[in-house]
Design a protein around this nucleic acid. Structure first.
Length: 271
DNA sequence: CAAAGGTCCTGCTCGC
DNA sequence: TGCGAGCAGGACCTTT
């Protein structure tokens, strides 16, 4: 699904089209997402202007006049901006119709995503309050990782994917960052040196930044707001490359399962 | 039938 | 022994 770069790609695509637009109507075609989609949005949102479009972790935040719409794409979600007259697909659950003829549509076949509404400061919302720093922000660096990893026996990959530690790194980019920094995904987080954590933090930032430049990674469902697939798939070094040679050292990339999640690494250059 | 990119929640384990 | 943090696994759902 959409990890941080895919949500960022979506935000950047939506922003120039929808920022400042006034909402004309709201359509809920299916309210049964991860949590019930609040029906009152149909009543509350029309007449409100979209004042901000931001991302926090993998959450997409639409700042309106009286509150914030919190959206998550789950495993299979995507958001498109289309002409309001476009015929909706079977999994287009939620739609914001703007004045001027454009619509923002949420499509989510697996329905692991959500649309929530809060009138409080959005950072205080229970889903966001416990999140760790943004990996592309100033608080995230090698020292931070080293410090929070002390005495932890869980594998480093699990730590990277824990949103309370660092926000928004998903399964693909955890594998990629570990490959780039030469760290084995199963290595206990508490047994990695500070210099290696510096390198890992750099790798995380580099992989995410490059993926954003490429418009994200598309494996099956993800498309940006204009319907385009992400191109970072072709730049992946580990994820999805089981039995293929490492681009770095030539060893065969291995696929293992960690916590029921596919994990790819190179036995040659990752220790 | 297995697997798919997320993450919340529950209950267990381990170390202090 | 008891407590809490950390950790593993299940749950959610549809499509290929």
């Amino acid at each position: 699904m959409p990890e941080l770069p895919e949500v960022e790609t979506t935000v950047r695509a939506i922003r120039p089209l929808m920022l400042g637009k006034c909402i004309r109507a709201v359509v809920i075609r299916s309210a049964s997402l991860r949590w019930p989609l609040p029906r009152k949005l149909v009543r509350i949102l029309p007449g409100q202007r979209i004042q901000g479009i931001e991302r926090r972790a993998k959450y997409l935040l639409l700042q309106l006049e009286t509150g914030t719409l919190i959206m998550h794409l789950g495993m299979s979600g995507s958001i498109r901006v289309v002409r309001s007259t476009t015929v909706p697909g079977p999994h287009d659950h939620f739609e914001l119709l703007a004045k001027g003829g454009l619509s923002l549509r949420l499509r989510d076949p697996r329905r692991f995503g959500c649309v929530l509404w809060t009138q409080s400061p959005v950072a205080d919302h229970p889903l966001l309050a416990g999140l760790g720093p943004e990996p592309l922000g100033p608080q995230f660096d090698g020292w931070y990782l080293f410090r929070v990893a002390r005495r932890r026996r869980a594998p480093i990959k699990n730590l990277l994917m824990d949103g309370r530690i660092v926000a928004g790194i998903g399964n693909i980019y955890a594998s990629e960052a570990l490959h780039l920094s030469g760290i084995h995904p199963r290595r206990a987080a508490g047994r990695i040196s500070l210099p290696r954590y510096e390198r890992l933090a750099d790798s995380v930032r580099q992989v995410l930044a490059r993926a954003i430049e490429a418009g994200g990674t598309t494996f099956r469902d993800f498309v940006s707001a204009d319907g385009a697939a992400g191109r970072f798939r072709f730049a992946l070094h580990a994820y999805g490359r089981g039995n293929e040679p490492c681009r770095q050292c030539g060893h065969v990339i291995r696929k293992i399962i960690m916590g029921q999640r596919a994990t790819y690494y190179c036995p040659g250059c990752q220790r």
